[in-house]
Computed example of a mutant assay.
Amino acid sequence: MIRSRLVGVIGAGGPGTGCLVGPGLVLTSAHVVAGQGARVRLFRPLHGDDRTGEVVWCGTPQGTDDAALVRVTGPGWSGADAGPVRWGCFVTDRPKQRVEVWGLPNVVQRRGREIEVYQLTCEVNPGSGSVNGRHYCGVTQHPPTWTDRKGSPWGGPRAAPSSAGSCWSGWSPRTPRTSHTAPFWRCPPPNCTVTRAFATR
C-alpha cells in the first residue's frame, strides 16, 4: 500500500521522508521544511524524476502536530496519484499491534548508489505515549549494524509513513538520535487531522 506513496523530501531542516496522501499532496514533518510557503525538493525513489513543492500547511516543529503538507508544483508524477489514503487509529490497548514503517534511513544508503528504501516491521503498545499523543514503534526485526557514533542509523525517515492492516495509521516525526534499537516515535493521524487548516487542504 505504501510503496507507491513514498516520497523523499529535502527542505531547510534537512532530508526526510514524505507520503502522498492525495493527488499532488505530500505529508512530511514540519521540522523538515522551513514553514508555510517554503519551497522543498521532492523525489520518488527508483523513478528518477524530481519535483518541487510548496508548503501549504505547517504544524509545530517537535510538537504533537509536527507535520506539514506540501503541494507538488508543476506536472504531477505519472501513476503516483493513488487517491486519498484511508486514515485509521488504534481502538484497543492490546499490546503488540503490528505496524509497518517505510523510509529512506541512513543505514541502507551507500555512496554512489541510488537512494534506497527500507521497510521496517514494528510493534506498538497503544497505551505507551498516549498522554502526549505519541506511540512508540519497537523494531521487531534484527537491528542493523551501525558504527557512526555521531549520527543515527534511522536518520532520514522523518515523517516515514506507517500502516496497520489496510489503513494509513501515522507518521514518524522523530527517530532516535544514536541508538539502532531505540523505538521510533509515531504520531497518529488525529494529531493533525483535527486541525481545520490541515483538513481543508
Rank of each mutant, 00 (worst) to 15 (best):
T140I: 10
P45D: 04
G48R: 10
R110P: 01
G133E: 09
Q36G: 08
V7S: 04
R3H: 12
H142T: 14
V99H: 04
V9C: 06
R111M: 13
Q97A: 06
V9S: 03
D49G: 06
G156V: 03
M1I: 01
P157C: 14
T195K: 14
E54W: 00
P176R: 00
R134W: 02
Q119C: 09
C192I: 14
G18F: 10
Q97P: 10
I115G: 00
W146S: 07
E114T: 13
W154K: 02
V124N: 01
V32E: 02
P176F: 01
G35D: 13
Q141I: 01
L46I: 04
T181Y: 00
R201F: 09
R86Q: 13
G48I: 03
R94E: 13
G14Y: 12
P126W: 03
G24I: 06
S29N: 15
P15T: 10
S172A: 12
S78P: 07
I10S: 04
S130I: 15
V107C: 15
F90K: 02
W185A: 11
R94Q: 06
V72A: 08
C137Y: 01
R134C: 04
P143T: 07
F198A: 12
D65V: 14
G127C: 06
N106H: 12
F43C: 07
E100D: 11
T140H: 00
P144R: 06
A164K: 01
G13V: 15
K150N: 13
G88S: 14
R98T: 10
V139N: 04
F184G: 01
F198W: 15
S29G: 15
G48W: 03
V70W: 00
D65M: 12
H135S: 05
G14M: 15
H135E: 04
G88F: 09
T195S: 13
R134H: 06
G13L: 14
T17I: 08
W168F: 15
C89M: 12
R186E: 11
T140E: 09
P75M: 06
R186D: 08
S78I: 05
